[in-house]
């Protein structure tokens, strides 16, 4: 993916679909799968990550000329961690129940490779505003993948969508869906579908 696309629409298309961080770059899986047995948690987690990625990309891009090269990584980590702490505090203050359920996974946003990846690949070479959009859409791309996985898991495992009962026929709950293996199977299949599709159509703007 060329790192110099600065058109917001292009960035959105790239990050949401074509080069989706989770499905195509296989990044950021760590903290993502654990929360996908509930759509509500996935949404909050996804939005939290979008916020952190957008703002840290913007901040790091604004500082890109004054950051000493040698300590780049640690500066990136510190800025990211600061934004994650903000998100964590805000969750504790306004959504205490969700904050409790997400537990350590909010803190783990720090080590989510998407944020660091965008900071390295895009924010370093681009001005703050495109960097912010790039980070934001990378986060949204991650959010929809999480929500999709959570939709399958929550409907089949609990019979609910966002906690609202949608089980009109009274089927047997599929316990494996709320356990970890289901997350692996679903994301594996999604990645498979995406790369099979990418192999079939040779897109001109892919390297």
């Amino acid at each position: 993916m060329p790192g110099n696309v600065t058109n917001t629409r292009e960035i959105a298309k790239t990050q949401l679909w074509r080069e989706n961080q989770v499905l195509r770059q296989i990044l950021g899986i760590c903290s993502s799968l654990a929360v996908t047995n509930s759509m509500k948690n996935s949404l909050v987690m996804g939005l939290g990550l979008s916020f952190v990625t957008a703002l840290s990309s913007m901040t790091l891009s604004a500082m890109r000329d004054i950051i000493p090269h040698r300590v780049r990584m640690i500066v990136q980590t510190m800025v990211i961690a600061a934004y994650v702490i903000l998100v964590d505090l805000a969750l504790q203050a306004f959504l205490p129940d969700i904050s409790k359920q997400l537990g350590p996974y909010v803190g783990l946003i720090i080590t989510n490779c998407i944020i660091m990846g965008r900071a390295e690949a895009f924010a370093q070479k681009n001005p703050p505003l495109p960097a912010m959009w790039d980070g934001f859409f990378a986060g949204l791309g991650y959010t929809w993948v999480l929500l999709f996985i959570a939709l399958i898991r929550e409907v089949l495992g609990f019979g609910t969508v966002f906690g609202v009962n949608v089980d009109f026929i009274g089927f047997e709950r599929w316990t494996i869906m709320i356990m970890p293996p289901a997350a692996f199977f679903i994301i594996g299949s999604m990645i498979w579908a995406m790369s099979a599709r990418a192999q079939r159509l040779p897109t001109p703007n892919k390297k």
């Binding site: 296989i26 692996f184 199977f185 994301i187 594996g188 299949s189 990645i191 498979w192 579908a193 995406m194 790369s195 099979a196 599709r197 990418a198 192999q199």
Partner: peptide
Amino acid sequence: GMSGPAISFI
């Protein structure tokens, strides 16, 4: 499309 990450996840 299955080789690589997809099969690893499965």
